[in-house]
């Protein structure tokens, strides 16, 4: 088992944990953190599988750099929105869905 496969395997587990983490908790900060764990899992799979033969592959590494920047941007927007929601409602949670019905 190469180190690449260890990375890829851990990435898959992290991704699944991240998905559960986005769905389960109600606290927004935990959801946003879980989304980041999910993304990191996918990045690990991308890089890990790419270099499972042992030699480094620059293409997935560059893709992951792009992906990290995208994730940073999305996280920043999510945090800003979560803060605004907390300022307006005093709670770090999404209000119940049926509110507007």
């Amino acid at each position: 088992m190469t180190t690449g496969m260890i990375f890829a395997g851990s990435g898959a587990i992290l991704f699944a944990m991240g998905v559960a983490g986005v769905l389960l908790p109600t606290h927004l900060l935990r959801k946003i953190l879980a989304f980041n764990i999910m993304g990191s899992g996918a990045f690990l799979v991308l890089v890990g599988l790419g270099q499972r033969s042992g030699e480094p592959d620059p293409v997935p590494q560059a893709m992951v750099l792009t992906g990290i920047v995208v994730a940073v941007a999305a996280t920043a927007l999510a945090l800003a929105l979560a803060r605004r929601l907390q300022r307006l409602t005093g709670r770090m949670e999404l209000p119940p869905e049926a509110e507007r019905d």
Binding site: G11, F15, G18, V19, V22, L28, K31, I32, F35, M38, G39, G41, A42, F43, V45, L46, L49, G50, V59, P60, M63, G67, A74, L77, A78, L81, A82, L85, L94, E97
Partner: peptide, 22 residues
């Protein structure tokens, strides 16, 4: 925020699929 989280989970799943394909 609800839209953002859903769309991020969606693209996250898509990205993992792309990683496996690569």
């Amino acid at each position: 925020l609800r839209y953002l989280l859903s769309t991020l989970v969606g693209s996250g799943a898509y990205l993992l699929g792309v990683a496996m394909i690569y």
